[in-house]
Computed example of a mutant assay.
Amino acid sequence: MKATKLVTAFGLTAIAMAVSTSSHAVDLVKSDDLTFNLNGDIDLKFIQTTSGSDPSETTLETNFDDIDFDFKMKIDDSLSFLASADLTVESDDGDSAESASTFAGFKYNDVTVTAGYREDAIDPLGIDTFEIASLGRASGEQDGSGTVFGQTVVVEYDHDDFEIVASHTQIEDTTTVQRSALYGKTKVGDFQIEAGIGKETDADDTATVNFWQAQVEYFTGSFTLGALYSSLSADESGTDYDSTGLEFNVNYEVSDKLDVYAGYETIDNGISGTDNYSGMGIGARYAFSKLVKLYVEAGTEDGTYLKAKGTGVSTSTKDDAKILGMLLSIDF
């Protein structure tokens, strides 16, 4: 049976307000020593999905997403105090609001130290440009709990074309799972190289997860080419699991307003008697302006991939799942 979820009046009103916005980010306070600004985006999404022999499902939703409040106070030429809060409001048969991150810290020259409720150091990894299709599992499902929020301490060094980030996280909704991660990025000519490594452990010895990923992107003319390799190993109560993944992505800039892109990924789940996972997708992104973009995407995925976390190991299976969708994204 087809299921339809309708956009709420709040979402439509928010979109109308955002269209009238003329510049990205709103400076609530701005001076030489103090900055407090607001930015975010509103997403209007239409999606049709099918899985195996199940009937298709149609979804229409509005997300008032990534509403960021950023505060920066300059102490002197070398030292600044920083604070940030991120709020997400979603419309899906009713409105809901949640805080995605709240943290504070300081920046001293090229070193930034923050602490609070936020994502960890390995979060930037992943080469796919997809907003609707479910590509990116070879990176997102191959790093333990994935893009997880918790009580996190982050130390970052960023200078010219070199960046390194280290973090330690107490995983949300658990009292025993700890996660440490290290991430690095550099640029060499037309190449951008990124890598990350991490470990997730449970004090009750439920599971231990180790993971690492490396990716490279090559920028040449109107083309951007990307490749990623990921490796995950887990030990749950004496049982070992190993999984590896590959991602490939290509983006072509047709014009200043139009990009087209495609991606393919595969995961060797290391589990006998199951089909390995694969996914692919194509898409186009059209920029009406710097603030308003339209995405059209189609994708398919099939097979089984590993979900290994400090809380335990499980699997997830996609049965010839297909997705077709459109997304109107409005920044402010």
Rank of each mutant, 00 (worst) to 15 (best):
G196Y: 09
S222M: 02
E156R: 15
Y229G: 02
D173V: 04
Y252N: 03
E98M: 10
V165N: 03
F71N: 01
T102R: 09
I197G: 08
A195L: 12
E265R: 07
A3M: 09
L324S: 04
T220V: 05
D76N: 14
Y229C: 03
T300N: 06
A16D: 13
T176L: 09
D93G: 14
A25D: 08
L44I: 14
E253S: 15
L258N: 02
I164K: 04
Q178A: 14
G189N: 15
G299M: 12
T112I: 10
S230R: 12
I267G: 01
Q151W: 12
P124S: 13
D160P: 03
L294R: 12
A133G: 13
Y305T: 01
G310L: 09
L87T: 09
V216K: 00
T152W: 08
F10A: 14
T174M: 06
G52S: 12
F211V: 00
M326G: 14
A321E: 11
Y229H: 13
V154R: 11
R179T: 00
H159K: 15
P55N: 11
G144I: 00
T239D: 11
T311W: 06
S278K: 13
V292R: 04
T35C: 01
A308N: 08
L38I: 07
V154C: 05
A115N: 07
V260A: 07
G116I: 06
E247R: 07
L34Y: 15
T4V: 11
Y286G: 01
L44W: 06
D120L: 09
E141T: 05
D161R: 10
A14N: 14
Y108T: 10
D65C: 02
L44H: 05
D68N: 12
V26G: 01
G273T: 09
D275S: 14
T244M: 06
V250P: 00
T21Y: 01
Y157G: 03
T244R: 11
S53R: 13
T129I: 05
V111K: 11
I132E: 00
S222C: 00
G189P: 01
D158N: 14
G245M: 08
Q215A: 12
D320I: 02
V260N: 03
L28M: 15
D128S: 13
L38Q: 07
P55D: 10
